[in-house]
């Protein structure tokens, strides 16, 4: 690049280190691989972990889609996309899931299933599911290595005692490949089953916490639950027990965001804007 900045911003050594960590993360599904998270020209907490993964993986033939809470055009998504466009000459960006080879996302997994030739990168604020029960990282590492998650389960138990159900709405602890439990980033419960047996590789990057972990394709991902209190996703039914629909596309199968419109009415629409548009296109013919 003429301005002296390397392709994809990171220097080649940094990319290589991240790729190595990614390979390790794939080999040990759910294990948090530490890496030396680089300083990025944006504040930590704005997706620097996800961005570093994206930059280490992206090549000239890739097509990138960036999503923030389901939407391609929120400020955060736009900024990240622009940054990649600026530092990665020759790559394509898209908002269409089908066209993307690399998808970086915050808080959502797209509605439609991913393909084997796609990689999903999720931005993670807090990588360790155990942090709510154990403050010491040393002890957490031992607990992970021994798959000692009873205290997390006790948390679920206490939830049911207090509220008659498991109240965790996002960052739902999920066991990968029968051993490590991950914090699957702040995706809603609704998206957790999509981790299981996914066609695409799913990578998690925590920039501030300097951790990378992975759910490899066709790997098991089981949300923690009791035999007799199973895991449930959000159900979006109205007071008559009917599934709510998106006010834009009419879908009754998507994860819905709730708004108050100008008349003060509660309205619902797809959180995944690309999905919603495609549904509308289909309807128009």
């Amino acid at each position: 690049m003429s301005n002296g900045i390397n392709f994809a911003f990171l220097d080649e050594y940094a990319k290589r280190e991240i790729r190595r960590s990614v390979i390790k993360a794939i080999c040990i599904p759910g294990y948090q691989v530490p890496y030396s998270s680089r300083e990025m020209p944006m504040g930590r907490g704005f997706g620097t972990g996800g961005l570093q993964l994206t930059l280490a993986l992206i090549g000239a033939n890739d097509s990138l889609k960036v999503i923030d809470q389901g939407s391609d055009d929120s400020v955060n998504a736009v900024n990240l996309r622009k940054f990649v466009e600026m530092t990665c000459p020759g790559i394509d960006t898209t908002t269409r899931l089908q066209e993307a080879t690399l998808i970086q996302s915050r808080h959502r997994i797209p509605e439609n299933s991913l393909r084997a030739d796609q990689i999903l990168v999720l931005q993670v604020p807090y990588p360790d599911a155990l942090v709510i029960v154990e403050p010491s990282e040393d002890k957490r590492k031992i607990m992970h290595s021994e798959a000692d998650y009873s205290r997390l389960l006790v948390k679920l138990y206490e939830d049911i005692v207090k509220f008659d159900e498991i109240t965790i709405s996002h960052r739902y602890p999920t066991r990968i490949n029968g051993h490590y439990i991950i914090d699957p980033s702040p995706i809603p419960r609704y998206d957790v089953p999509k981790l299981h047996n996914s066609n695409a590789l799913i990578l998690f990057g925590a920039g501030r916490e300097k951790k990378i972990y992975a759910v490899p394709p066709h790997c098991s991902a089981e949300p923690l639950a009791f035999d007799d209190v199973p895991f449930r996703v959000e159900n979006f039914t109205d007071s008559h027990g009917e599934r709510r629909a998106c006010k834009q596309c009419g879908s009754r199968e998507s994860f819905l965001d709730e708004f108050i419109d100008e008349q003060g009415e509660r309205v619902y629409q797809c959180s995944d804007s690309d999905y919603c548009e495609q549904q509308q296109e289909l309807a128009r013919g």
């Binding site: 000692d148 009873s150 205290r151 389960l153 006790v154 138990y157 206490e158 049911i160 005692v161 009791f226 035999d227 007799d228 209190v229």
Partner: peptide
Amino acid sequence: ISAGGNIAERLLMSQVMNYSEI
């Protein structure tokens, strides 16, 4: 955690995964 939760912890460590049983 509650008194019951303390006992639950030990049972959960022993792979008892049924809430009502715990």
